[in-house]
Nucleic acid binder design. Structure first.
Lengths: 219, 219, 219, 219
DNA sequence: GATGAATGAGCATTCATTCAT
DNA sequence: GATGAATGAATGCTCATTCAT
């Protein structure tokens, strides 16, 4: 959890100076608790009482840190987005694959792996995108959309240069379509999480997805 | 609005016998009002008071017809699913295209057209899928998933037989991927509705989508 | 408690139709309880919880009757103003005194008597005028001001015609001054209520007040 | 702001020794801010947070200086009462008029002038007397009452000696009545402040008031 | 069968005051 | 002595649901 993000959130009025000055450990605890709360329930069902209790602080402090309930979600979203961005920015800086197809395949597989190692974050992400009012999530959904389609755009842009990817369509459109297929995998993964007995070979699904994306479903 | 569906909903405990016996016109009015309510707001923000008022009935009657609030959503979802199913079942019965590619392209284009002529239904569909708790929507989401992927499965199955579609992957997997691309178009359309100035050539997007699906993004 | 006033209050959005339809006895009980509440405490210290308890109804009903707390005060003020107006309108219709001086003296004495027989109403009146935010009381204070100065204006106007009262000053100004002397008596009475041992001859004070008003303090 | 008053307030437990020892400038600033706060809002609506912020000190210091919120009002009232007393004591020491009638007329006119040059103080005075719980203001209201009626008593007592004022009534009673007419002027002035367009000739009103007081309204 | 009055649980938010640093 | 972080009591209001008429 980057202190600079806290500062940025303070500037946006999401957290108070009081919160910023808290010991990092405490801030992290609160983040984890808030994230878990919104990963488990929709906004309306999350109560300050329960969050405060889980975080080991008083309701009064909670409201002092975040001013109002809406900012709890904003905060969790802001921090997680930053973590997420940091993770994948770093990923792409140390990426070794060269071919566009491999790059996309690897990214998708890594993605499912990432979620598999961060279940709470995944649930939060899915709740944000599929189970909460757009009024509350518009901002954060957009950030994720820009970020994720941006990753694909870069790969696609490079792929077009090398001739690996067709040049007769807008990069952005192709990005959205690939992103849709990643979302598809995420939803399959989410469904699998619900019914634990099911074994899904996520690597395989990612590979097939990319295969279709590149070669098409044509016979 | 099919009376048989009402009977089925009564058996599932979604509506009461009292509701079933209502004049069809009244039932239809109530359906329209409930649909519009959940198309506009998330579950928690919909109040029985306002729904009753808009439907021209009393709060007491409303609860007598549906037992509890959750069933309002269940009811609207059930009726709309049936309408939707009826519409597309009929569509496929009178479909003239032969080639898999055309069938999918036509279906997608027709779909966006369908939504464009049924904005309230579209909003309802999107709210159900992207802005309401899975606890409430699991059932209806699943029904739509089965139905929609089923349509694609049929086309794909036939396409595999004719050799138009590759046979090295499970029909179901391919269906989901195509469905994901339809969802992508629906989200683009939803975004366009939000910002009215934007002109999006939906036909074109549908065509490009199918082109990529069949031929791939490979250069 | 006049039903027409309830209807008027409903039109002003002060009470709900639900309240209007209540049995008159219940409405009266609620009025008495609300009046007593605001007679005893300032607005901020009156809690819906306590009022509901005292009235033998639930907090939910209370809010259903009055929509929000502010309307409780508005309601009590409205009903009391009407009672007050009715009382004094009637008083002036059956008044027998002829001379302006006597009319004013009688009115003042009767006033203190009136309050003496309606202690809760008096406390309410004083709380409204001296112990609550003008934001909340502006309307009702103004109504009382108009009504009371109006009574004096009529007496004064007639007194000017008969030559009993000087004609070199505006009726309204003289009314306000007489009203101020009535307020003075009310404050003296209020002080006396606080310290029960004190005996104050209110009749005497009223008489002296009028004597000074008419003859002046000049030696 | 007299240091002796601070000492007296400290003895009454209104301010702490810590506050007394503050630099005079700081004490004055705090006084001005507290006065303005209670001039603008009723007790319940004044928040320590805002007062501290406006005074440029911390909430902790504020509570250390005054122990509890109630003392803020007590403090502002105490200081202002002293200023007020000092002003009018001085006024009466340098007063040149001789006749009772003139003395009262001058005092009233000077009073309205005084308020006109001290609007915050006037608002504070009015809030104290007409818009705050008697529980909080009983003390200070009484002080002002004693002081103000005292001024009039002196004039009246002297007037009785010279035969300018009737001797058949208690001095105190006459004082209260004259005070009531001053309050009347203050309320007219307050109303005029609210509706800035209105022009009121305060001097004229004061003159008329005294004319009536001395000669009566008799024709 | 229709109505709508009554209920009460639930929750965000405010803010004076305490107290550790 | 100054600060401001922590607290928790208090309260208005919303709304689904119950139930008497």
């Amino acid at each position: 959890m980057d202190e600079n993000v806290i500062v940025a959130l303070e500037k946006r009025g999401v957290v108070s100076a009081t919160f910023r000055k808290l010991e990092p450990v405490k801030k992290k605890t609160i983040y984890k608790v808030v994230l878990a709360a919104f990963a488990e329930d929709i906004f309306e069902s999350v109560s300050l009482e329960k969050v405060a209790l889980a975080a080991g602080i008083s309701k009064g402090s909670l409201i002092q840190y975040f001013m109002h309930k809406g900012n709890l979600l904003e905060f969790a979203g802001g921090i997680f987005l930053d973590d997420y961005r940091r993770h994948w920015d770093n990923y792409f800086m140390t990426e070794y694959a060269v071919r566009a197809k491999d790059r996309i395949a690897n990214f998708m597989a890594a993605h499912l792996d990432y979620w598999d190692n961060a279940k709470t974050e995944f649930k939060f992400f899915m709740k944000i995108h599929y189970e909460n009012s757009a009024d509350l999530t518009k901002g954060i959904r957009n950030e994720f959309l820009k970020l994720r389609s941006g990753y694909f755009s870069q790969i696609i842009g490079r792929g077009m240069e090398t001739g690996e990817i067709r040049r007769d369509m807008e990069t952005e459109f192709i990005s959205l379509l690939i992103l849709a297929s990643l979302k598809n995998l995420e939803q399959i993964y989410a469904a699998a999480l619900q019914t634990p007995k099911t074994k899904v070979d996520l690597k395989d699904l990612a590979a097939k997805t990319v295969m279709i994306l590149f070669d098409g479903i044509g016979g």
